[in-house]
Amino acid sequence: MTTALPGFPPALVRRLVIKIGSALLVDPAGEVREGWLRTLVADVAARRAAGQQIIIVSSGAIALGARRLKLPRGGRGSLEDAQAAAATGQIALSQCWAGLLGEQGITAAQMLVTLDDLENRRRYLNASATLERLMQLGVVPVVNENDSVATAEIRFGDNDRLAARIGQAAQADAVVLLSDVDGLYTANPHVDASAMLIETIDKIDARIAAMADGGSASGMGSGGMTSKIQAARIATGAGAHLAIISGKVDSPLSHWADGGRGSIFLAAPAKRARKGWLAGRLTVRGRIIVDAGAEGALARGNSLLPAGVRGVEGSFARGDVVDIATQDGRVIARGLIEYDSDAATKIAGRRSEDIAALLGEMPRSVLVHRDHMAMI
Rank of each mutant, 00 (worst) to 15 (best):
G221M: 05
G221T: 10
G223T: 06
G223S: 07
M225E: 01
M225R: 08
T226S: 10
S227E: 02
K228D: 02
I229V: 05
Q230C: 13
Q230V: 12
A231E: 06
A231Y: 02
A232I: 02
A232E: 02
R233P: 08
I234T: 10
A235M: 03
A235D: 03
G237S: 04
A238C: 09
G239W: 00
G239R: 08
G239S: 09
A240I: 08
H241V: 11
H241G: 13
H241M: 13
L242C: 11
A243V: 10
A243T: 08
A243Q: 06
I245P: 13
K248R: 15
K248W: 14
K248Q: 15
K248F: 12
V249C: 12
D250W: 11
S251G: 13
P252E: 12
P252Y: 08
L253D: 07
L253G: 13
H255E: 14
A257S: 15
D258R: 14
D258Y: 15
G260L: 10
G260E: 11
R261I: 15
G262M: 05
S263Y: 04
I264S: 12
F265C: 13
L266G: 15
L266K: 15
A268H: 11
P269N: 15
P269I: 13
K271F: 00
K271E: 08
K271V: 13
R272K: 15
R274W: 12
R274H: 14
K275F: 03
G276E: 04
G276V: 05
G276I: 03
W277I: 15
L278N: 07
L278W: 00
A279D: 08
A279Q: 11
G280R: 04
G280Y: 02
G280D: 04
L282W: 02
L282I: 10
T283E: 11
T283D: 11
T283Q: 10
T283Y: 08
T283I: 12
T283H: 07
V284G: 10
V284A: 10
V284S: 14
R285S: 14
G286F: 00
I288H: 01
V290H: 05
D291A: 12
D291Q: 09
D291M: 05
G293Q: 05
A294I: 05
E295L: 09
G296S: 09
A297R: 04
L298M: 07
A299S: 05
A299E: 06
R300I: 07
R300L: 06
R300A: 08
N302K: 11
S303F: 00
S303Y: 00
S303C: 03
L304E: 02
P306N: 04
A307T: 09
G311L: 00
V312Q: 01
E313C: 07
G314Y: 00
G314N: 02
G314D: 00
G314E: 00
F316L: 07
A317K: 09
A317P: 06
R318H: 06
G319V: 03
G319R: 01
G319K: 01
V321K: 01
V321Y: 01
V322W: 00
D323Q: 04
D323P: 00
